[in-house]
Computed example of a mutant assay.
Amino acid sequence: MRILHTSDWHLGRTLHGVDLHRAHEAFLDHLVELVRAERVDAVVVAGDVYDRAVPPVASVELLSDALARLTALTRVVLTPGNHDSATRLGFGAGLFRDRLAVRSRIAGLGEPVVLPDADGAPGALVYALPYLDPDMSREELTETGEDGARERPARSHEAVTAAALRRVHADLATRRAAGARVPAMLLAHAFVTGGAASESERDIRVGGVDAVPSGVFGPAGALDYVALGHLHGPQRVGREGVDPVMRYAGSPLAFSFSEAAHHKSTALVDLGADGVRAVELVPTPVPRRLGDVTGTLAALLGRAFDDRTGDWLRVTVTDDVRPEQLWEQVARRFPHALVVRHVPARVRERAAATVTSAQDPLEVAAQFLAAAGGRPARQAELAVLREAYEAVLAAERSA
């Protein structure tokens, strides 16, 4: 069986104000063509399909179109992440036929989606967990102990994920005992210990903890592959030879400058009766390069940066004094600059200032201008400050 693992599409997201809708369209076109070219048996999407619980209409239409095209070629298994609304994403799930499975409810998470092989026999089992928020899922994951008492999982991601995995492993053990070994994979949206985060994932900490140890998903001989979502960098996690093969597909697009060095991809996973046989990372389309450029304004306007004019950039200008019309000059040079900031290269020694009611407010304002602008305040600027301050005082006196 050939499975295409992807996640964290975040349809509806922007990048520093830039609408990524067309970039998402290009990615989904690529995904459809990849499924066709590689004869993929199923696409699994491990959460965060949308960027927010109530997505824009255009994003809903984009997903509808993508699922229609994908299910014309293969099967799709999809779960919500922490950005999605499980209820909205799962609307109508009971009406979908066998080529689209949206697993958005905790009930039934121990029952897999059975993918048929070319002969119609079970070719792979896909257990799909929706994002398990500890506060929202503990009650439904309550178990009956050996003494008959009801035991609710602790308020942590580790506890609720472990409770869900006990249901999965119990079902898998029963199926394996009853017949030939069928490869099994799990979809989960979680922060697994050891994963490298970026700046664009939403914080999911509860009680100060967000991580789930990789051992929760084991042992290695049971589940063959764990298809993870949540972290935006494609990476393998877990202990090789101890845990199942565990990967984050990562997001198909970069959503922060911390992801500039990521090689965005989807994972083609080949499964056999003996488990994972191969994993191939397929690069996703790059709408524009993302990166940083740093230097004095004169250097940035020079020929050395000619190859960066088409990139999405974070521009850091290092002149000691903030240049006039900084944004305008940078925008003419780099029309796709997303962030422009002034960080003087020479760090001046400044005594820590404590503002008290005894200080002259105009003096404090002048000190701030000097610290922020890298030069003393001009007389004209001080005059504006003085006029504004006196106007406030006059207003207070007349109140």
Rank of each mutant, 00 (worst) to 15 (best):
M1Y: 10
R2P: 00
I3F: 04
T6M: 12
S7D: 09
H10G: 07
L15Q: 09
H16L: 03
H16S: 05
D19A: 10
H30V: 03
A37S: 10
E38G: 09
V40P: 04
A46E: 03
A46W: 00
V49C: 00
V49W: 02
V54L: 15
P56C: 11
V60A: 06
R69E: 15
L73Y: 04
T74H: 08
V76G: 02
V77Y: 15
V77D: 10
F91E: 06
A93Q: 07
G94P: 02
G94I: 06
L95M: 01
F96G: 00
R99T: 15
L100D: 03
I106D: 05
A107T: 08
G108K: 07
G108R: 07
L109H: 13
E111Q: 06
P112R: 11
P112H: 05
L115G: 01
P116M: 11
A118E: 07
A118Y: 01
A121Y: 10
L132A: 10
P134M: 15
D135W: 01
E140N: 14
L141C: 13
T144K: 04
T144D: 15
G145M: 13
E146S: 04
D147M: 11
G148C: 12
G148R: 00
R150W: 11
R155K: 11
H157Y: 01
A159F: 03
A162Q: 11
A164R: 12
L165T: 00
R166D: 11
V168S: 13
L172R: 05
G179W: 02
R181M: 06
V182L: 05
A188N: 04
F191N: 12
V192A: 08
G194K: 08
G195D: 12
E199I: 02
R202C: 03
R202E: 10
R205C: 00
G208M: 14
V209D: 11
V209H: 14
A211R: 14
V216H: 05
P219N: 12
A220S: 13
A220P: 05
G221A: 08
A222H: 04
V226N: 06
H232K: 07
H232Q: 08
E240I: 01
V242H: 13
D243F: 03
V245E: 15
Y248P: 00
Y248S: 05
Y248E: 08
Y248D: 12
A254W: 02
S256T: 05
S258I: 14
A261I: 04
H263E: 15
H263P: 00
S265I: 11
L268D: 07
L271W: 03
L271M: 06
D274E: 12
A278C: 02
A278F: 11
E280G: 04
T284Y: 10
P285L: 14
V286Q: 15
R289T: 06
T296I: 12
L297P: 03
A299W: 07
A299Y: 13
G302Q: 08
R303D: 10
A304T: 06
A304D: 14
D307Q: 15
R308H: 15
D311H: 06
V315T: 09
V317Q: 01
V317F: 03
V321C: 07
A331S: 03
A331D: 12
R333K: 12
A337P: 05
L338Y: 01
V340G: 12
V343Q: 14
P344Y: 05
R348Y: 12
E349I: 09
T354S: 11
D360V: 10
A370K: 00
P376Y: 11
R378L: 09
R378S: 14
L382T: 14
L382F: 11
L385E: 08
L385I: 10
A388D: 09
V392F: 14
